[in-house]
């Protein structure tokens, strides 16, 4: 693993200036993300996690400080950093396969390449038989899987995930967490995963970033040494539970 940062937040502050209010969402946010690292950012609702992710995606420009991706300052969104949004962002007017093909097609990949990518990711998410279905006919969990596959198929260098499983029931959520980690192990990408669920963050991340409440800044960074392969059994292991309890105490004290 190359030690130079793949993504670097440097004293990033974001101030939302609207007619109604003036909000400092992010204050002096500093974080270096390494290549092929799975980073989870955890913090309470409204602490600026999504703002940090949107800055990384190029959807928001920092008010001060800068953010660099592969050594270059981020000026706007592009295909190198795909986002899986918290809300349902699957295009409802496209079938499952058209959704997955959207990224590769937009990047002018050949039809045969597009087809093989679509097949590959349809198989990975287990929705082969739903490839011609409209999103309206899928469950919330299935749509999230399509969203994930669409992001992967666009072949980004980095994946930014904003509480993607927040609205799902816990069984669906745990299954998708396992699938996400499996996808990550199979097809290594650099991932920033936002969540307010501490257990989810510990289960998925290589490193865990704890944020303070608004204005959001980093309170603690923890390494999660639970190995590459992570299954449901990990949740009941003592070291996992201990870490969860300690971090919970830490977050409560903040």
């Amino acid at each position: 693993m190359d030690d130079s940062p793949f993504l670097e937040f440097n004293n990033v502050s974001v101030n939302f200036n609207t007619e109604q209010m003036d909000v400092l969402a992010l204050s002096d946010f500093n974080l270096s993300v390494l290549e092929n690292e799975f980073i989870c950012i955890v913090g309470e609702s409204g602490c600026g996690k999504t703002t940090a992710l949107n800055v990384a995606a190029g959807l928001i420009q920092p008010t001060s400080g800068y953010i660099k991706f592969k050594g270059k300052e981020i000026k706007g969104p592009d295909a190198s950093r795909a986002v899986v949004f918290q809300m349902d962002a699957v295009f409802p007017w496209m079938t499952v396969q058209e959704n997955i093909a959207f990224g590769p097609k937009s990047q002018n990949k050949s039809q045969s390449e597009v087809n093989s990518l679509v097949d590959q990711y349809l198989n990975l998410i287990g929705l082969q038989e739903f490839k011609s279905a409209w999103p309206k006919n899928l469950s919330g969990g299935m749509r999230k899987r399509v969203d994930l596959a669409r992001a992967y198929a666009s072949n980004p260098s980095m994946l930014l995930m904003d509480e993607p499983f927040g609205a799902l029931d816990f069984i669906m959520k745990e299954n998708l967490q396992e699938q996400s980690r499996k996808l990550f192990n199979l097809d290594k990408k650099t991932i920033i995963f936002i969540t307010h669920d501490l257990e989810e963050a510990l289960f998925l991340g290589d490193r865990l970033v704890v944020m303070t409440s608004r204005p959001g800044t980093i309170a603690k960074i923890v390494k999660c040494d639970f190995g590459e392969e992570r299954t449901f059994a990990l949740r009941s292991q003592p070291e996992f539970i201990n870490m969860r309890v300690e971090l919970r105490k830490f977050m409560e004290s903040k």
């Binding site: 969104p77 295909a79 986002v83 949004f85 295009f91 007017w93 959207f102 992001a151």
Partner: peptide
């Protein structure tokens, strides 16, 4: 959200207008 999702998947302005905005308004 749809426009931002398309942007982060590498869609150009022309593609966004044709494949996102046009079908979305019908």
């Amino acid at each position: 959200l749809y426009i931002q999702a398309a942007q982060t998947l590498g869609a150009s302005t022309r593609i966004i207008r044709k494949r996102i905005i046009f079908p979305a308004i019908i």
